[in-house]
Amino acid sequence: MNEHMTLDTWKVGDTELASRFLLGTAGYPSPQVLCDAIAASGTQVVTVGLKRSLGAAGDNGFIGMIRDAVRAQGARLLPNTAGCRQAREAVQLAHMARELYDTAWIKLEVVGDEHTLQPDTFELVDAARQLVRDGFTVLPYCTDDLVTCRRLLDAGCPVLMPWAAPIGSGQGIVNPQALRTLRERLPDATLIIDAGIGAPSHAAQALEMGFDAVLLNSAVSQSGDPVTMAGAFRDAIRAGRAAHRAGVMASQSFAVPSTPVTGQPFILGA
């Protein structure tokens, strides 16, 4: 591999990252499996959450092990505002996350529909503006709507995270045309595909399309073997990125012979 192909980092704000795989931590069968999956993924960004606590059961050691795994790997935590329905709630939760996790990075989620968990774009933009003013590095989970994405960039978000499909659905990229348009219209924006990825091939497709990274959780944690699946996604993401950089050939509606023959090799029955 030439040197040009090896120097392939990207940035969230001022932070330079090599891995293009952001991994969620929910739903793993045990803390050890999660830690092994984090190691196998090679991720440098791991998402976490917050929960109202008093009546809740303990976390069964997950958070302690996540912190250890992240430290060992030189990765960062990315807390989310899952469960928020209003900008005001999300802003308060983000402040709490900054204190609990000691990071100004926040995955901003403000959901507007219970069935699809589709982001409420109005509340999302409002919350993003406030949090950027408050010094956060805001990574908003958003739809593929171009104008909303522009508003989020205008608000000061260094990265956008449009969905591939509804959270946890595993459907892959359901609207490639919208995402292609987003990529074309926002060529300088850092775009992470978040939510709906179900298989490594979906992640590879996102990278081939020119997206900068992918964030996923259930596709790994719900696998029968999360550690192996984390490695499969790592490899698929690398492959997709390499393919994008190399240049994927244009598809055509007709056949083009790949072997440079002239005419027919044998003329039988002549």
Partner: peptide
């Protein structure tokens, strides 16, 4: 009063 704790998340 609400108390929030760190948990796993996606």
């Amino acid at each position: 009063v609400l108390l929030f704790r760190a948990i796993v998340g996606g």
